[in-house]
Every structure is written in C-alpha cells, then in structure tokens.
Design a protein around this nucleic acid. Structure first.
Lengths: 208, 208
DNA sequence: TTTTTAAGTAACTATTTAGTTAGTTATAAA
DNA sequence: TTTATAACTAACTAAATAGTTACTTAAAAA
C-alpha cells in the first residue's frame, strides 16, 4: 500500500489515472469533465495538467493503459499446452470474462471509435501492441487443422474479431438489448447461457 | 420536395432532426452542442426547444426515429419465402449492409449504452418495437430444424444477437481495429471478405 | 546547512454552454 | 377584413468549461 505522505507524485498520478478512467468510462470523452476528474481523484486540478498535459493527452494515456492491461492478461493465457478445442474454449471464456469484468475497456473503445481512433493513431505504444493472441491463434488453428478437427484456412484476424464480437456486442449493448427484449441479460444465468452460446458458435464454425 | 416558403413547421422539424442525428452521431450526447445542431439545421436555436423540449428529449426523438428506420427495413425482408439456408444468408447480408450504410445507428446505440439506456427506458415506442426478426427467425430456425439442415433448439434471441454481433463489432470498431491490425478494414475487398466470414460463422454454427 | 527542484494550492479568466425572455410577423380561421 | 394562433428571431443569462497564473512548501541534491 502506498504511503499517504504529504507529497507523493506516483500516488497522485495513479489517483488521477483512476479517476480519469472512471470519468471517461462513465461519461465518454465529450461528457467527461476535467473538474470532475480532479474531484474524484481528490487532487488539485492543476496536477492533472502538470502530469498529463491536457484532456486529450490524459484520454490517450488512459486508453494506452487499458490496452496494456488486456494485452498483459491475454499474454498470461497458455493456449499452447491445450488441445486445439480446449484452447478455443479457453479463449472464448477469457474474452467473455475479461470484457464482463472490465466494461470500462469497451466504453473507452466505443468512444475512441466515435472519434475515429484519432487518439490511438497518434500513439506509437498502442500500434505496436497488437494482440499476442493473433500469433497464438495461428498456432491453435493450425494444430486443429492438422489434427483434422478444425476447418481449413481460417484467417486468424477474422477469427479473433469474431471471438471478440460475440462477447463484446452482447456485453457492450447489454442495456439496450435488455430493454428491447425485456430480458435481464446481465443476470448470472443469462451470462452463463450467453457464454455457452458463444462457445457453441465459435466451435460450430470451426468444425471441418 | 418541400416548399421553402417562409414558414414551414414540418420542414423546420425535419431540418432539426437531421442536424441532431448528425451532431449526436458525430460527437456523442455529451460532446454534441445544441448551438451546433441549430447551426447545422440553419434554424434558430429557439425552434429546437419549441419542437423538441430540450437536449435529452431531442436525443430520445433521434433514437426513436433510428429504431423505427431499421425496424421498417427489417420488416421489408421476406424471409418466409426463402429456403432456411437462403433466409439466413439474406439475414446476415442485410444486417451487415444496413449497419455499414447507416453507421449513425451504431453510434447512437453505443452512446445510449454509455448512458445505460436511460433514454429508451422512458420510451414506450421503442420498447414495443422489438425486432420483427425475432418472430421471423423462429420460423426460419424451425423450418431448418424440421428439414434436418439446422441444429436443434436454437434460441432465436441468442441467434439474433449473434448475427448482429459479427457485423456490428467489426463495423463499429473499424477505426481501432484497422489501426491495431494495420489493415484497411473499410476497403471493399475487406468488407466483402468480412461478410463472407460472417455468413460462414452463422451457417457453420447452424449445421446440425 | 543551503540550494534547487518539483509537488502542490487557491483563485482566476476567457469562452462556451443549455436554456430563456420578450418580442415580431406570416398565415389560417372567424 | 379582423383576430387568433403559432412560426420564428435576436439578444440575453446564469452556470459551467478547459486551461492558467502566481504562489507556497516539502524534500532531495549540493
């Protein structure tokens, strides 16, 4: 735990980061208020400009950290030791779980797409951070293909996007979908059912 | 074509609606500016309050019209006369095409989910407008099941969400995905390839 | 111990914001 | 033609907005 001494730049920076993540995620870039970020962080607003420059740069910083976080978690998955089918199950489960437990990530991404990716286009860091999954996936898909349990010539990028899709769309649009279908899609049974469906879709597609 | 007489409430309302759709879609609710909407419409700002109440109500109105539009288009699809497989192909193609040609709809939805569906929760209209697809889908899935060409007991709502997912996620996140994967996902060949992949995924899943 | 650096604060500013006031004027009903 | 209604306008306002100025003070380096 961080010492709460009178001066602590690391702690202050971290408080600002956390508050900014919450505020941008809650209200979007356009709806987020710099004053609110400072207030949520319990820090003087001037500090925010001192450490992060301005609102845009702070948003980019928050995005970079969010990408870093998911890539780190992805990197920890050990798909290579599993059978192709088990690896795919694990991948779908991880993707679903991660987005469910970290909805801020989807909210930031939606917002970044609203602004046509203008922030991450400027970011060297994020561009280099392509998912380790894509390489891993190539191996898993190849192994499945050779073993005769997966269909041939699956494009790993298309496949990655599809795995993300079936989890992301459900979780990101859960409020409108729940309202329109009159179902509580965020209940535990509904979430379990959706994960099972996602797994069925992905494995169903892969059958040769 | 509308007469551009000095006074024309229908035309003024329509100009405001179009400008609001564009502004909310471009900048999100929080980033949209009432003054900009008036300017884009070429109309006095007061008119906006006169016809639509306030910013929130105007946003809800725009959302309602957007839902109405997609439901109308969906309603025109005639899946019942097609073979189950052809019906599914048509459905995937329509969904992909509609979202590609009407990206404002996804942007509005993303924004509405950012605000946890607070606007549409208040809307009687939208809640009643559940997709005619879900009923149509039930028929198509059943026909395919009986004919022995589709898997059994597919939940039409899960299925509908999945069909939307694979198109929506790709198109809505096209800017960040293109940046990260270093591929121009909005090019004609990339879009064609994606549609084919989506069709393969959905039909692959349905195989018994 | 002295000096330098950087962490932190309070109060401010120019501009923008959603929403309003107080009216004018075109048009359709009487 | 007169009257009532509603379309439309210009100018305004109170509050909020991103960003800044001018300063104090803790703590690391000399």
């Amino acid at each position: 735990m961080a010492k709460a001494t009178k001066r602590n730049p690391e702690r202050t920076k971290e408080l600002i980061h956390k508050a900014a993540l919450a505020e941008f995620s809650d209200r979007g870039y356009g709806g987020a208020r710099v004053d609110m970020i400072a207030e949520r962080a319990g820090v003087n607003k001037r500090m925010l400009y001192h450490y992060y420059g301005n609102k845009d740069d702070l948003f980019l910083h928050v995005l970079e950290r969010a990408y870093e976080k998911i890539r780190t978690h992805e990197g920890k998955l050990d798909l290579a030791t599993l059978s192709p089918e088990e690896a795919v199950r694990e991948l779908v489960k991880f993707t679903f779980k991660y987005h469910h437990e970290n909805p801020e990530f989807m909210r930031l991404l939606n917002n970044e797409n609203l602004y046509k990716a203008e922030h991450i286009k400027r970011s060297k860091n994020i561009k280099q951070m392509h998912s380790p999954f894509v390489d891993l996936m190539m191996d898993v898909l190849k192994r499945g293909e050779v073993a005769g349990v997966f269909r041939k010539n699956v494009d790993p990028v298309q496949f990655y996007i599809t795995v993300a899709s079936v989890a992301y769309f459900y979780l990101s649009n859960i409020y409108t979908l729940s309202t329109i279908f009159g179902r509580k899609l965020s209940s535990k049974p509904a979430l379990d059912e959706r994960l099972e469906h996602c797994t069925d879709v992905v494995l169903g597609y892969l059958r040769p």
